[in-house]
Simulated assay, not measured.
Amino acid sequence: MEEIYRLIEEKIKEAGHEGNVSGKDIYDEICDQIEEAENGSYIFMSKKDDDVFFEYKIDVMDDNFNLSYIDINTPQGKIHVDFDN
């Protein structure tokens, strides 16, 4: 699991986000959101502080999920983090 957490953090930093992020926290939040979800594609929003929120695009399947992208919305603009590439 540590590898997954590190990958999430690295992708976000590579996309240009300079704030602190926790891959574990993001992964856990996604798991909580999709716990009872049916198969399909979902967009989830998560407010991180007063002026920053994350938008997750997730595809839920029977035994797993795919984090397609995260859009990090800040006062300076949007940072798109593509996990499908």
Results as ranks from 00 to 15, higher is better:
M1E: 09
E3R: 08
I4V: 15
I4S: 10
I4R: 14
R6F: 13
R6Y: 11
E9Y: 11
E10Y: 05
E10M: 05
I12Q: 01
I12S: 08
E14F: 06
E14M: 13
E14N: 15
E14T: 11
A15F: 08
G16I: 05
G16Y: 12
G16N: 11
G16T: 01
G16K: 10
H17C: 15
H17G: 13
H17N: 14
H17T: 13
E18C: 06
E18K: 10
E18Q: 08
V21P: 04
V21C: 02
G23W: 03
G23F: 02
I26Q: 02
E29T: 15
E29P: 10
C31P: 01
C31M: 13
D32K: 15
I34D: 06
I34C: 03
E35R: 13
E35K: 14
E36P: 00
E38A: 12
E38M: 09
G40V: 07
S41R: 14
I43E: 15
F44S: 04
F44E: 02
F44Q: 02
M45V: 06
S46D: 15
K48T: 05
D49K: 05
D50R: 07
V52Y: 03
V52I: 10
V52G: 01
V52H: 03
F54N: 06
E55I: 10
Y56H: 04
K57W: 05
I58P: 00
I58C: 04
D59I: 11
M61G: 03
D62A: 13
N64C: 12
N64H: 14
N64I: 09
F65T: 00
F65E: 00
N66M: 06
S68K: 15
Y69R: 13
I70G: 00
D71K: 15
I72F: 00
N73Y: 07
N73P: 04
T74H: 02
P75W: 02
Q76Y: 05
G77M: 14
G77N: 14
G77E: 11
K78W: 01
K78V: 14
I79E: 05
H80V: 14
V81D: 04
F83N: 01
D84G: 12
D84I: 10
